[in-house]
């Protein structure tokens, strides 16, 4: 933690993410208006600034944009966290088994990963959700599937290196079961790079979630999501261009937060890669 506080990139990222988490948790208390409240009389109100009633303006239904952006942070962070968590568990599991067992198991698992990588990840996520049907849960599932290979590859390469170490041989000589050696001794040492990839994956997951929602495949109304807000804004791009501006900024700031933290963590754990 001390190292994180000393690294400007990681610290900035951590501050942004912590602030966003607080916003998402206390969204009910922070929204200046009811984000679901429809009032046609004030539809397409331009941003009125910090002293106005509608600080960032309203959408086609007269709903307050700031309140909707605040509420939308929940879906973005939730989908990204669950998807990243799932891809982390499955990726680490597949990668470590492939690396530790080697041989046919390794070949089969890694060829499956190659198969997922044979599609542009956004396209595969879109195809999976198109097949399963739109919705938050299916979006989470699709995003996690497309992020598994990156996690599996990193874990596998780490395990391949670590399994030749002396402490592993010592464990084997003591007659420990393979699962114990793998999960209690080897994986503990892979923690840092896995966390770096997971942090970066959070940023990617937020973008993919926004993309799916933008295309109408992610969160469905009445659930508020930044991607969906952008899709609605697109329809009014000539008359109310501000509707597409702010939800997008929210996405950029969130992704930037995770990228900064990921960059910083990588610098801390792998000084050789510093600056890349």
């Amino acid at each position: 933690m001390k190292k994180i506080l000393k690294n400007p990139s990681a610290l900035t990222g951590l501050i942004i993410i912590s602030a966003l988490l607080l916003v998402a948790i206390f969204a009910d208390y922070l929204t200046p208006h009811d984000p679901y409240d429809i009032d046609i009389w004030v539809s397409y109100t331009a941003p009125e600034g910090i002293k106005g009633t509608y600080i960032l303006g309203t959408d086609d239904m007269g709903r307050d944009l700031l309140s909707r952006i605040i509420m939308g942070s929940r879906v973005s962070l939730l989908v990204a966290s669950v998807a990243t968590g799932l891809s982390l568990v499955l990726g680490v599991l597949f990668g470590s088994i492939a690396g530790y067992c080697g041989g046919l198991v390794d070949t089969v698992i890694m060829r499956l990963m190659d198969l997922i990588l044979a599609f542009p990840s956004v396209l595969l996520a879109i195809a999976i959700v198109a097949s399963l049907g739109p919705g938050v849960v299916n979006a989470m599932f699709a995003i996690s599937i497309v992020r598994i290979p990156a996690m599996a590859r990193v874990t596998r390469s780490m395990v391949l290196g670590l399994k030749e170490e002396e402490f592993v041989m010592a464990g084997q000589a003591l007659g420990f079961r393979s699962s114990r050696i793998l999960f209690r001794h080897i994986l503990i040492n892979c923690f840092a790079p896995i966390m770096v990839i997971a942090t970066m994956n959070m940023g990617t997951a937020i973008v993919v979630e926004a993309t799916l929602s933008f295309l109408g495949l992610g969160a469905q109304p009445p659930i508020i999501s930044w991607g969906r807000m952008l899709a609605l804004g697109r329809e009014a791009i000539r008359s109310a261009p501000y509707i597409t501006l702010y939800p997008g900024l929210a996405i950029v700031i969130t992704v930037l937060g995770f990228n900064l933290l990921g960059d910083g963590l990588r610098d801390i754990y792998d000084p050789q890669l510093r600056g890349r």
């Binding site: 952008l230 697109r234 501006l245 997008g248 950029v252 930037l256 990228n259 900064l260």
Partner: peptide, 17 residues
């Protein structure tokens, strides 16, 4: 870093508007 963090479709919307 901001460029990396920006969804391309949002940048597209910005360029349009």
């Amino acid at each position: 870093l901001i460029g990396v963090s920006m969804p391309s479709f949002w940048l597209g919307l910005l360029l349009l508007s």
